[in-house]
Design a protein around this nucleic acid. Structure first.
Length: 289
DNA sequence: ACCCAGGCGGGCG
DNA sequence: CGCCCGCATGGG
C-alpha cells in the first residue's frame, strides 16, 4: 500500500487529512499561513518558501505547488507530512479500544509532521502555560521581527540570531516570562550544543540532550523528540492528554505524569507518539468547542 | 472579575 | 522523589 506518489504537478495523497494535520497544534499550526479550509497553505522551510494547494479528499487527494515545483520541494513535502508512514500499520498498533477507535475514525488521516528541531524547540518553549491561539501569535511575531529576510518572505530566525535578541524585544513579541528561556536556549544551541548531533540518536539520548536546554522540561522535550526528530516513542503529556487519560482510563481520578507514561508505554508501545496526537486532539476538540 | 492555557525552574521536606 | 510556588499575557 502506497500513501503518496509524485504526479506531474505535485504529490498525490491517500489517507491524508490536511486540515486536522495543519490545525492540530503541531509546529505548522504556528508557522504556516492557511485559509479556513486548509486548501491553500504556505510556510517557510529553511531557505525555501513552500506554497501549496490541496485538492480532492482525504481518501484521494493531491497537492499542487505554486512557483517552485521541483523534485526537491515534493520530497520536502513528503518528508514534512510524513507521507511515507504506513497508516494502516500505525492505526492497527494504536487502535486498542473503543475510545481510540472513535478518535481514529473522527480524525482519520491526521498525520504527524516532521519539523526543524530548532523551530520546534522555540515553538514548544513558547507553548508552556499558554494556549494555541496565543502561541501562534507569538511565533509569528518572532518571525516578523527576527526572521531572516529572503525573496518575498522571512525564514524562521536561527539560534545565532535569537541569541543576540534583547529580552525586552523578545517580550514585546508577547513571550512573557519565556523570553529568558528563548535567549538562553539560543545561546546554548549556538555556543555549546548542536541540535543536529541528536539526529541519529535513540529516543532516550535525544530526550536527555534536549532536557539540558533552558526552558525545556519533560513535556517540551517529548514534543521536540516527536515533532522535531520523529521519535514515535515520545508521549508528551499536557493538561489535555492528562485529563483525557484520567477520564477514560482511570475513572476520572488523578494520576501522576510518571504513572501515565508507564500506562502509555504499556498500551501503545513504540507508537505512543502517534497515539498521543489523536488523544490530544480528540480531547482538546471535545473539551472546548 | 475570574479561570485557564500543549509547563518549567527552583526551593522545600 | 513528591509537593508547592511564581511566572506574563490574553482568550473565553
Amino acid at each position: 500500500m502506497r500513501y503518496y506518489s509524485f504526479s506531474s504537478g505535485g504529490v498525490r495523497t491517500k489517507d491524508f487529512d490536511i486540515r486536522h494535520t495543519i490545525e492540530s497544534a503541531q509546529p505548522l499550526t504556528f508557522l504556516a499561513d492557511y485559509d479556513q479550509e486548509c486548501r491553500r497553505i504556505s510556510y517557510p522551510s529553511g531557505r525555501r518558501f513552500v506554497n501549496m494547494q490541496f485538492h480532492g479528499t482525504k481518501d484521494n487527494g493531491s497537492i499542487g505547488l505554486d512557483g517552485d515545483s521541483s523534485i526537491e520541494v515534493k520530497r520536502e513535502i513528503v518528508k514534512r507530512f510524513r507521507l511515507t508512514d504506513n497508516m494502516e500499520r500505525l492505526y492497527s498498533e494504536i487502535n486498542t479500544d473503543a475510545f481510540m477507535d472513535e478518535a481514529i475514525r473522527r480524525y482519520h488521516g491526521m498525520r504527524l509532521t516532521l519539523n526543524d528541531p530548532w523551530e520546534t524547540t522555540v515553538c514548544f518553549i513558547i507553548s508552556q502555560f499558554n494556549n494555541v491561539k496565543r502561541i501562534r501569535r507569538i511565533v509569528r511575531s518572532i518571525i516578523d521581527r527576527y526572521g531572516e529576510h529572503r525573496d518575498g518572505f522571512r525564514s524562521f530566525p536561527s539560534s545565532e540570531t535569537l541569541k543576540d535578541a534583547a529580552i525586552r524585544d523578545l517580550m514585546a513579541c508577547g513571550t512573557g516570562f519565556r523570553a529568558r528561556y528563548i535567549k538562553e536556549a539560543a545561546e546554548y544551541c549556538t555556543d555549546n550544543f548542536n541540535l543536529g548531533s541528536l539526529r541519529n540518536k535513540s529516543y532516550d539520548r535525544v530526550k536527555d540532550g534536549l532536557i539540558e536546554i533552558s526552558g525545556v522540561g519533560d513535556k517540551v522535550a517529548d514534543c521536540i523528540a516527536l515533532f522535531g526528530y520523529g521519535k514515535l516513542e515520545a508521549f508528551p503529556i499536557d493538561v489535555w492528554v492528562k485529563r483525557t487519560l484520567e477520564r477514560i482510563y482511570f475513572d476520572g481520578k488523578e494520576r501522576s505524569i510518571k504513572e501515565l507514561h508507564r500506562f502509555a508505554e504499556e498500551k501503545f508501545g513504540g507508537y505512543q507518539g502517534f497515539a498521543q496526537q489523536y488523544i490530544f486532539w480528540n480531547g482538546r476538540q471535545s473539551g472546548r468547542a
